[in-house]
């Protein structure tokens, strides 16, 4: 194997504008975007509404095609002239997507049948389908509900069923497009724990689009979009150490960082990149102690 692994998704110099009515000037939704997603990584994508993050997700799942530039899936240029329908289908088998509204992505009346929907359409033998469905439900912690009706589940449970459906199709990369936006705090915790486990234990590449900053800090890498361009790209520590930049583009930082920022402004020597309440308290308590000792 070579030193540099092929990225699962790569975006090269991509620009795109949605079609407009006659006479109206098109406005770019994405402008010269370059982004490389390593296999097995966990990347959060942040940006205000209209920043281009959903357009980017649609590019990566090949729902939209770029005006210029290219999208590479697993080393293959999907924007090349000679790409066939079979190539596109093949690439789509590598990247799955989970959407925002849990009620819009459940098709069957029994949980396990819903998870089996994808594998059935792949034309797999029934023993293999059975195996995959059981395994997928196990991975999202929904085995107990295999024979339940989806409409009686909570939002978080429905999202986990939707995730199981993607896993059963053996997707190597899953894009979550604001999949936690409509859930209550417990549902968000369930889904985030599931996403994290899939990434850590099953090595599934995760792209998580979210408006919740305390979800974003759980990723290895955070990409911030603004006006169709990548504004920041780094570890959660690197990105959230710049609260002012984020506030300027209508985003936020975790409350721990915001409090530390206030402390720093008042002259305390504290780090900003702390996202855990306990560590945050430790940092502040230490700063107050050393301030006292210095006097």
């Amino acid at each position: 194997m070579s030193e540099t692994k092929t990225p699962i998704i790569e975006i090269r110099d991509l620009s795109f504008a949605y079609p407009t009515d006659d006479g109206e000037a098109p406005k770019n939704a994405l402008t010269n975007v370059n982004l490389s997603i390593e296999e097995g990584s966990f990347v959060s994508i942040l940006g205000h509404n209209g920043s281009g993050k959903s357009t980017l997700a649609k590019m990566m799942s090949l729902i939209l095609m770029p005006d210029s530039g290219s999208v590479w899936i697993d080393g293959k240029n999907m924007s090349a002239e000679d790409i066939t329908e079979e190539d596109v289908l093949d690439a789509r088998r590598k990247v799955g997507m989970v959407f925002q509204n849990p009620d819009n992505q459940i098709v069957a009346t029994v949980v396990e049948e819903d998870v089996a929907f994808g594998p059935e359409n792949l034309g797999l033998p029934s023993a293999e389908i059975r195996r995959r469905v059981d395994e997928a439900l196990e991975m999202v912690g929904m085995t107990k509900y295999a024979r339940h009706a989806p409409h009686n589940l909570s939002g978080g449970q429905k999202q986990r069923v939707a995730i199981a459906g993607i896993i059963a199709m053996r997707r190597r990369c899953i894009i979550f497009d604001e999949s936690t936006a409509m859930l209550d705090p417990a549902g968000r915790r369930e889904v985030m724990d599931t996403i994290e486990r899939l990434n850590r234990e099953e090595n599934i590449t995760v792209l998580h689009i979210t408006h919740y900053m305390n979800e974003a800090v759980r990723a290895d890498r955070v990409v911030v979009m603004d006006s169709g361009r990548i504004l920041l790209d780094g570890t959660p520590s690197e990105v959230f150490s710049q609260p002012e930049t984020l506030w300027n583009v209508r985003l936020d930082v975790p409350q721990t960082t915001e409090l530390l920022y206030h402390m720093k402004k008042s002259g305390y020597n504290v780090r900003l990149d702390i996202f855990d309440p306990d560590e945050c308290a430790e940092e502040i308590a230490a700063a107050i102690r050393s301030d006292r000792d210095a006097d």
């Binding site: 305390n214 409350q255 409090l259 309440p277 945050c280």
Partner: peptide, 20 residues
């Protein structure tokens, strides 16, 4: 009961444990 408090409330509780 599936709810939470703002993160800052957790920070305040953790500070209290440290004597602040």
């Amino acid at each position: 009961v599936g709810l939470d408090v703002p993160q800052i409330t957790h920070v305040a509780a953790a500070l209290a444990k440290r004597g602040v």
